[in-house]
Structures are given as C-alpha cells and as structure tokens.
Design a protein around this nucleic acid. Structure first.
Lengths: 352, 352
DNA sequence: GTTAGCACTCTCACTCATTGAGTGCTAACA
DNA sequence: TGTTAGCACTCAATGAGTGAGAGTGCTAAC
C-alpha cells in the first residue's frame, strides 16, 4: 500500500513521462508547486518506489521512468476517472457523428481514423458478427452459363453472396424449387442452425422432388456454405503509420514489429475479440499482451453493444507510454457513439 | 548514344548496387571477369557516365550509384527482357494458383501478398470495376420495421447492397411493384445508364401507379443510388511493412512518407488506375511519379485483362534501387495468372 | 521527518586522429 | 590512340578522449 505522497509522486512521474518521453528527475518534480518537498525528499521516495517495482532507471545518472507495473498501478488507482476531453477532441467527435453515414463500415472506419489522428496512436474497430441473427431470405440469381449468385440476407440486414456453379444435372426449375423450399422452411432460423435443420427436415423432400438427387445435393451444399461463411472480419484500422512519430518507434525494428502485427488483420481480430470476455473496458499493458509484437505496447479496448448484446470492439494500440486517461475517455465516448450508429442502422431505424 | 562498353559498365553498376545497396567502386567492377579492363579504364568511363547524368557520387571518395536517369536507361535498354525466375519464385507462384479460390478478392489479396514476400517490396492489386456490366437483377428484401435491403446484381455476378428506409407513405405492394417495374424495364441496361433510363422511360408509369408519387420517387432515388454506388475500390496491399527491411527506409521519415501514402487507399487507387492509359507495363522511377511521397520510389504496374478488356492492375512499389528485371518478370507472370482467375470466376466458369 | 551539500556516475555531444575505400591525374606502355 | 600503373588527394566512418550536465545516493544538520 502506497502512501498518499508516494501516489502523487508516481502520478506525476507518469504524467510527466507520458508528455515528455524523457526520464523524470527529482529536481524537475520538486519544481511542481503542488508537491511541497525538496528534491532530496523526492529522491528518497523515488528510491522506495523503485524498490517496489513501480519505477525504473535507464541508467544510474538518469531520472526515473514508470515500469509496466507502475503503469498498471497508475491505471488501477491513479488515473482520473473522468478526464475532461479537450475542446478540440470534442469538436472532432461531434463532427464525426454529425455526418450521416449509411453503413456501419463507414462509421467504423471513420472512428478508427479519428482515434488515430487525435491520439497519434492507432485506432482499431472490430465490427464483430451480429450475434443471434436469423435467416431473412435466401435468393439465387442466375447469370449467364452455369453460374448463379447466391444471396443470403440475415435479420440484421447483412448480405452474404457468392457465385456458385449449377451442376449439369439440375434443371432450372429444380434450382428454383430448392431455394423456395429453403425459404419456406428455414426463414427465421438462426444462421448457425441452418445446415443441421436442412439435414433434419429438408433432405427427404429434396430427395423426393429433385430429378438428380446427387447433383442437387451438391448444389445445396454450395448454398449452405454461403450461410456458413464467416462474416468478413471487419477490422478497421486508423492511420497506423502515425505511430512512427512516437519516439519509441524511432527504432525501426520495434516499429516494424508492431506495424507488421497490425497488418495481420486476423491476429488483430483475435486480440480484440477477447475483449468481450473481460467486461466493459480492458487495458493490457506491455507483457500483459500475449502477443510477442506488443510487449512494449498498450492495447486498450472497449466493447460496442446494443442494449446488453456485445456487437463489436473499439480500441487503441500505442506505446506503453500512453495518455491513459485521455485515451480511455475518448474510447468511452466513441464507443457509445458508434454503438448508437450501429443501433440506428441495424435496428430498423427506430431512433431516427 | 553509349558505347557497348559503357552500357555493360552501367548495367554492372546497376546490378551490383541493387544487390548490395552500396556505392560501386572501379576496383570492384574490374574484378568482374566479363569486363577485361583495369580499374583505371573503368574510372574514366565512369567519369563519362557521370557527366552524361547516368551516375552519381554520394561524395568524392565513394563509388558511383545510378541516378534516376541511369535507372531509366537501364530499364529502357539494358534490362534483360526475360529474366528467368528463380526456382523458388516459380514454386511459390505455382502453389498460389494451384489453390482454388472462389472469389477474385481472395486471389488478388494472395497475389499482393506473394509479390511482397518474394520481393521485399510492396505488392498492390487493383481490382477495378468490371467495365460494361449491365443490370442482371434488382431485388428488395424487407426487414423488420421500415427498413429493407436493396440488392443489385450485375452481369458479372457482382453484388451491391444497402439498407434503405421505406418512406411512410409507400405501401408494400407499391414497393414490390416498383422493383418489378425496374426489373422488367431495365434488365440488361448498362449500369451507368440506369438512372437516365428510369427518368426517360419509367417515371410516367411510376406516377400513374403509385399512391404517393413523391414518397415513391424518394424511395426510387435511394434504390438508384445503390446502382450508382462506386464499386468499392478493391485495392489490395501485400505486407507493406516488409519495406522497412530495405536500407533506404531505415530513415524513419522516408518510411513514414511511403507507408502513409500506401495507407490512403484512394490515392493508391488513382496512381494504379492511370496504368490503363499507358499500355501494357509501366515503370515510373522516382520523380516520374507525380506523387510527392514516391519521389524515391519506383512504381511498376501492369494491367489485368480478359481478352482485350482491361479489368484491373497489378503493381509493385519499392525503392528506386529495385530488381527491375525480376520484378517485371514476376508481374508479367502474376498478372496473366490473375487475369485467368478473374476470367474463370466472372465469365460463367467457362474454363472449369 | 525534511533538507542541504557533496561526491560520484553515466550519457551525450564534441573533437581529433586514424583508417580505408575510392577517385583524378599523369606518365608510361602497347 | 587506347590502356594501365602509380601516386597524391578526398572524404566518410570509426574510435578514443574530454568536458558538460543531469541525476543519484549518502551523510549530516536542521
């Protein structure tokens, strides 16, 4: 348990270091008006904080910098719970949500972008699969030759499509009958249950009506694949290269490591997706990220939701030396704004 | 006009410099067996080549490096027209096209990826709008409440969709009638002509049949917007951060400049799209790129086509010190491979 | 418990000499 | 006349040495 004085010294060191990226010395701190102690006193406290593992010294004659444990303590106990956002931040966020967007993708991309430009870190948005959607409609539009487009629309209005080949032995009216049967029997079925319900309920009928059962079921399989195709990952990145402006990424190898990781959308996806398991807002500092490339980074994520249902994640990736308070405030604001947009677009425009 | 000896010296300097990224000295060159001259002779020729603007000296006591004009001369006159690809390259390309893909997007992404990993530059693929597509089918699927999904399928099997709001004054049977009218009248119409043909031919009929003309035309407008929405840019990037391994991008500012540019997909799109105007294969060296961020880069592009119709672009972005011969060979191979895939997927599977 | 003072440590920036790669020029050679 | 050997010269890179400055830890005094 830290004393109040230790806490305020730790807080000041973190704040100062986050701003300047330079180790903070005792003299610098003693100049702060709020702290009415001499450099020597502060030095003693700093030595204690270092012994406790909250501070580190790059070398003997340098000031102190926060350790990862120090950041962790700061985030858990010291960060002011509601940082007032800067006027500029508020202005940009207002403008962002003022522009009418017609698709969640647009809004998500813009949010990622704004996060990056306001913070100089990288904003990320994961528009996860909308949970619990059901089949709204399945359509098949013939193209020239043997090919056709299969369209699957779910109850959230999302569309999946794929070009399929109609096997030789299946006449057009069988194709049409097949899609009709599916629509009639399976409308309203949860997407993940479609295949099993087809096997349970539809196969016998297919066998009875189709001219060439084997070919027809081959077509049916292609159609079912469309319903099972995972929604595209929907990972949106802000301007990742902004981070190259941060002093910690002047080292090209560190920079490459993080930027390469961000390039692999599916890995980013996994890291973001685990947010859902950890409640509202999650801060992962340095080694708390399992990912090798993020050992010197902090990843802060918060979830998007409509009512109680989680539907996505908004986050920020940056160096461990991060403006925690401000980023958290930004994330809270933006995630609730984006949740609203999502709700408006996918819930029948009920609120506007 | 250069003498044969000057040409071979220039070629050797380019080849050597591309490999080593170090200025090439006269002694190094004189060691080459093919060139039976002493260092002094080569020095004289190098001085001449520098006077002609094909070589540069970083400083007095360094070797020579090719100038942008030097690279230009190399590309125009010296690059061997058909470099034999390495066994490893061929292997990877074969594997790439052996894996069956069901969508052009997948194949394009993979090609960009392979280009990046084989070259350590950045591969880019632009899947441009399929030209001259016509309307195949327009459908409207009602969701809950007032919203519905509009689906537009074109003759190439591409699908565009968007959620629209059905205005209060339009009853469902009017909605259905509207889509029916469009399908009946406009099937086969080139996409870019749909709006004008609606105005020319359909408006009167709409006015006659709809209960609330004003609201109906508002809905119609939303629907037409879907047909006009530009196909999403379809710019695919390989691993851009690979380039951070190149010596010229150890300078973080140069690196940021190029990577930031690559992040702006719409700018990349423009640069690639202009390839179509310049024939088969285009090499833009350094200042030949209008783009500020690419002043030290080379952009090589080649077009994808089905028969004579251009349908996209494949390219590579890298430093001016580029393996021109190999990259050109790779691009030719990959673009023709990708054209085939495109053809297979969007032309009714005629070839398999 | 707090502070002033002092010796000590370490990085950073600067200078300077050395090294080595490479050039240009000149004179000799075929 | 074209080619080559030799030599003086230039310049970047390297590494050692130095002083300044920032910061610490410790001790003794308040």
């Amino acid at each position: 348990m830290l004393t109040e004085r230790q806490k305020s010294i730790l807080r000041m060191i973190v704040d100062d270091y986050v701003r300047s990226a330079e180790p903070v010395g005792s003299r610098t701190l003693s100049k702060h008006v709020e702290l009415g102690y001499s450099a020597a006193t502060i030095r003693n406290e700093m030595a204690d904080l270092e012994a406790l593992g909250y501070l580190e010294q790059p070398h003997t004659s340098a000031g102190r910098i926060p350790s990862q444990a120090g950041y962790r303590y700061y985030v858990d106990h010291l960060v002011s719970q509601d940082v007032a956002l800067r006027a500029k931040d508020i202005e940009e966020i207002k403008q962002l949500f003022a522009t009418r967007v017609s698709a969640f993708e647009q809004a998500a991309q813009q949010v990622a972008h704004v996060l990056s430009s306001l913070t100089q870190y990288t904003g990320v948005v994961l528009g996860a699969k909308v949970y619990d959607t059901t089949l709204k409609s399945l359509q098949l539009v013939p193209l020239s030759g043997q090919s056709a487009v299969v369209l699957v629309i779910n109850s959230a209005g999302q569309v999946q499509n794929k070009t399929v080949t109609i096997p030789d032995g299946v006449p057009m009216h069988d194709v049409m009958q097949l899609t009709e049967m599916i629509n009639r029997a399976l409308c309203g079925t949860p997407m993940y249950r479609i295949r099993s319900r087809v096997y349970e309920e539809l196969m016998r009928e297919v066998a009875r009506h189709m001219e060439d059962y084997e070919e027809a079921s081959r077509l049916l399989d292609q159609i079912l694949q469309v319903t099972e195709e995972p929604q595209e990952p929907n990972v949106f990145l802000g301007q990742a290269t902004n981070m190259l402006l941060q002093p910690e990424f002047q080292n090209i190898h560190k920079a490459k490591s993080v930027l390469s990781w961000l390039e692999k959308r599916d890995e980013v996806l996994v890291s973001l997706a685990t947010n859902a398991l950890h409640g509202d807002l999650r801060v992962r500092i340095g080694a708390e990220n399992e990912v090798e490339s993020l050992q010197d980074c902090t990843l802060i994520t918060t979830s998007l939701h409509i009512g109680q249902i989680p539907i996505g994640v908004v986050g920020v990736v940056g160096p461990t030396r991060m403006e925690y308070g401000r980023v958290i405030a930004l994330l809270r604001t933006l995630s609730s704004g984006l949740s609203d947009v999502y709700g408006r677009i996918y819930s029948g425009h009920s609120s506007g």
